[in-house]
């Protein structure tokens, strides 16, 4: 029941987000100067030619009419056709990029969990020692490091100096992409990993202080099992929510990191679409991103319901 209700609420959210994003991007793009036709034809094309292309792209129609048209299409699940890649479906243009970004984000989340959860747990177990202090200092430094800086540093040292990874690029198919994905994913991990580590550390410390951990210890439950079965699950709960909340930040981080590593994800699509004022593509990307984030939040909702028995009852 709760699952149905949650899903329904998120579905409603998707509709609202879709409406706002469509109207919003339409208005926004028209507020900033810059002519898509000029961007396609270059600065040397004559005004008549530019005018002709504007007409062909439907840009000479009133804004309201254009918005109404793109909303109408959206209802039918049609994102429209690109200005730059003339006649090509927006969906077919951004689909592959979405897959790439999703793949990168998934690897980054996995890496962040692999590093952050044991790391945070370990910091909690060695609390108030030098190791804990250094570890916490490390996470603070990493969190303060902007994604693109992390990306550049990794690119320079890991790739160029040590030659441990390609200096960017993308294979285009799995598992060949693994060669390329891990470094950009690591760059994103420099943000999400420490965040998870800190959350897990705090949550684990809270859990360790809980009477049930003490009680388990008193009952003679082995330390390993206490850490694995009592402290860890309770420390993981806030991580689900944390990752859900950070989906947006992760995507924007991915856009930047993708640029540094020339990963052909939504980021490079978006950059290109913005520089050429490819309105339908920009709109498509904004929409797809927003919807993905809502879907991702739904996923974390469901995950929370699945792992925390208390939510199931209190709702």
């Amino acid at each position: 029941m709760l699952v149905v209700r949650t899903t329904f609420a998120r579905a409603l959210q998707i509709v609202i987000v879709g409406l706002f994003v469509t109207v919003g991007t339409n208005l926004l793009v028209r507020l900033v100067p810059g002519d898509p036709a000029r961007a396609i034809l270059g600065e040397k094309a004559s005004p008549e030619v530019v005018r002709a292309l504007r007409h062909e792209l439907g840009l000479d129609q009133p804004v309201i009419q254009q918005i109404a048209r793109s909303l109408g299409r959206l209802v039918q699940g049609d994102l429209g056709t690109s200005f730059g890649y003339r006649g090509q479906e927006v969906a077919s243009l951004i689909g592959p990029g979405l897959g790439v970004t999703a793949g990168l984000a998934a690897v980054a989340i996995a890496l962040s969990l692999v590093v952050g959860v044991p790391g945070g747990l370990w910091l909690a177990l060695v609390r108030r020692t030098e190791a804990d202090l250094i570890g916490r200092l490390g996470t603070t430094v990493l969190l303060a490091l902007p994604s693109f800086m992390a990306a550049l540093i990794l690119l320079y040292f890991v790739s160029l100096k040590l030659g441990l990874a390609p200096a960017g690029g993308w294979a285009g198919s799995w598992p060949e992409n693994a060669r390329y994905v891990w470094l950009p994913a690591l760059a994103l991990t420099t943000y999400l990993g420490p965040l998870i580590a800190r959350t897990v550390r705090q949550a684990a410390l809270d859990a360790i202080g809980q009477p049930f951990v003490e009680a388990a210890r008193a009952r003679g439950v082995p330390r390993r099992r206490i850490v694995a079965c009592h402290v860890l699950p309770n420390a993981l709960l806030p991580v689900i929510t944390l990752v859900g909340f950070n989906a947006g930040i992760l995507v924007s981080g991915a856009v930047i990191v993708e640029t540094v590593f020339a990963v052909p994800g939504l980021g490079s699509r978006l950059l290109q679409a913005m520089s050429t004022r490819d309105l339908p593509v920009m709109q498509g990307i904004a929409l797809v991103t927003a919807v993905s984030i809502v879907l991702f939040n739904l996923l974390t909702d469901l995950l929370n319901i699945a792992v925390d028995p208390r939510i199931r009852r209190t709702h």
Binding site: L152, L155, Y156, G168, Q272
Partner: peptide, 11 residues
Amino acid sequence: KIIDPAARLAQ
């Protein structure tokens, strides 16, 4: 397509 000049140089 590598949009960022620094990324091109690195590659």
